[in-house]
Simulated scan of single mutants.
Amino acid sequence: MRVTVTAASALVVLCVLGTLVFTGVVWPNRWFVPRDSAVGVDVSAHQGTIDWEELTGSTVQGRGDAISFAVLKATEGSSHVDEQFAANWAGAQEQGLPVGAYHFMSFESPGESQAQNVIDTVPADPGTLVPTVDLEFYGDYFDDPPSAELVHGILDPLLEGLEEHYGAPPMLYLTREAYDLYVADLYPDNPIWFRSVTLPPRVSDGREWTIWQYSHRDRLDGYDGRERYIDLNVLRGGTEVLEELTLPE
Rank of each mutant, 00 (worst) to 15 (best):
T23N: 12
G237W: 14
V41P: 12
H80E: 13
T6M: 10
L55R: 01
N190D: 06
E53H: 12
G96Y: 14
P131A: 00
I211R: 09
P201N: 06
V151L: 03
P188S: 02
Q84R: 01
V16N: 06
F85W: 11
F142T: 02
L162W: 15
V3D: 14
R236W: 13
G222Q: 10
F104A: 10
R207C: 05
I154G: 07
E208G: 10
E249K: 05
A168T: 10
E249V: 01
W52A: 09
L17E: 11
Y229M: 08
A7H: 09
L11C: 07
R236F: 09
E160N: 07
L20C: 08
T19C: 09
T49A: 14
L181C: 09
E243H: 05
G127F: 05
R228Q: 15
W209P: 12
P98M: 06
R226F: 00
L14Q: 12
V151F: 00
L174E: 15
A74K: 04
D42A: 00
V130N: 07
P200M: 05
S109F: 09
L181T: 03
A87P: 14
L150H: 04
W209Q: 08
H216R: 08
L129V: 00
T121R: 05
E54S: 08
I230M: 03
G48D: 04
H80I: 10
V26P: 12
E227R: 10
F107P: 06
N233D: 12
W31Y: 10
A101W: 05
Q95M: 07
L247D: 09
P34M: 03
V60S: 10
D82S: 11
H103K: 07
L159H: 04
E136R: 01
S78G: 11
D134I: 00
R207S: 07
S79L: 09
G91K: 03
W193L: 03
W193Q: 10
M1V: 03
S204I: 10
F32V: 02
Y187A: 01
V133R: 07
A115K: 01
D144V: 03
Q61P: 10
F32K: 01
T128H: 05
G167E: 14
E136W: 14
V122M: 06
V71A: 06
F69G: 00
Y166K: 03
S44G: 04
A10W: 15
T210Y: 11
V99Y: 01
V25T: 11
E108Q: 08
M171Q: 11
E208A: 13
L181V: 04
